[in-house]
């Protein structure tokens, strides 16, 4: 039991390339399973982190492959938190409207879907940006015990 009560952390640094998404997913998966999170919830966390990193690669770094993405995981018996940091263009989450799928479909726009998924799949999504310095998104999920 003492092990489960310990605060655990992990960190992964990757370049802003879509080919690194699978490594990011594996890293999240490994940690979420180690935290004892149920499989369906693990899958949701993996997808939310994929969406956050895809947005960073496409929008913060505009597909330039040399940007840095840092993924930090922190969990205890109550909460599993993934912090994702980038040094690209800042992001204004309030400017991303909730998707109107019919409208998206007509306009061939899909960027906001990832944001909507992240908010649906996680308990909390928080953005913090210091323009010109860094952007940070915090994704957290409450871990149900028992």
């Amino acid at each position: 039991m003492s092990v489960r009560n310990k605060n655990r952390t992990g960190e992964l640094r990757v370049k802003s390339k879509t080919e690194n998404l699978s490594e990011i997913r594996d890293f999240v998966s490994m940690n979420a399973r180690a935290a004892g999170i149920p499989e369906a919830t693990v899958e949701n966390i993996i997808l939310a982190v994929d969406e956050a990193c895809t947005n960073i690669i496409k929008h913060a770094y505009k597909l330039s492959p040399e940007g840095e993405i840092i993924i930090k995981i922190n969990y205890d018996k109550e909460k599993f938190t993934v912090t994702i940091i980038d040094y690209g263009k800042s992001f204004e989450p309030d400017r991303v409207p909730l998707p109107d799928l019919q409208k998206y479909y007509r306009e061939h726009r899909v960027g906001g879907l990832g944001m909507y998924l992240m908010k649906s799949l996680m308990d909390d999504v928080e953005y913090q940006s210091v323009p010109g310095e860094y952007n940070q998104v915090l994704l957290s999920k409450n871990i149900r015990s028992g």
Partner: peptide
Amino acid sequence: AYISSAGLGVFMAYIE
């Protein structure tokens, strides 16, 4: 085995 919104977007891009 897995799909993200980038995959879902492909279906939206061509359906019309």
